[in-house]
């Protein structure tokens, strides 16, 4: 499962970010294995995604989100 599969309001734990398509900057914003990600909002026309990752609010496009492996969290 990847970050692009999340539904609005769902929370997930980030599992793997080793894909070369994920820029360092995103990791520095807190997108790292073990951290929590919540999908806050989806923009009109279903892209980009507005996320809360590790308490940082940011938006990325789906094309990046599909490279971030996650696991749904029960919280």
């Amino acid at each position: 499962m990847t970050l692009a599969d999340l539904k609005r309001g769902q929370v997930a734990i980030i599992k793997d970010v080793s894909s070369p398509y994920i820029p360092l900057k995103l990791l520095e914003m807190g997108c790292l294995p073990g951290n929590q990600a919540r999908l806050m909002m989806v923009a009109p026309f279903s892209d980009p995604l507005y996320l809360n990752i590790n308490d940082t609010h940011l938006a990325i496009r789906k094309e990046t989100a599909v490279h971030i492996q996650i696991e749904l969290s029960n919280e």
């Binding site: 820029p23 900057k25 995103l26 914003m29 980009p48 507005y50 940082t56 609010h57 940011l58 938006a59 990325i60 496009r61 094309e63 990046t64």
Partner: peptide, 10 residues
Amino acid sequence: KSFFLIEMPD
């Protein structure tokens, strides 16, 4: 390589 990242400040 197109890539997009923006912070959504409060």
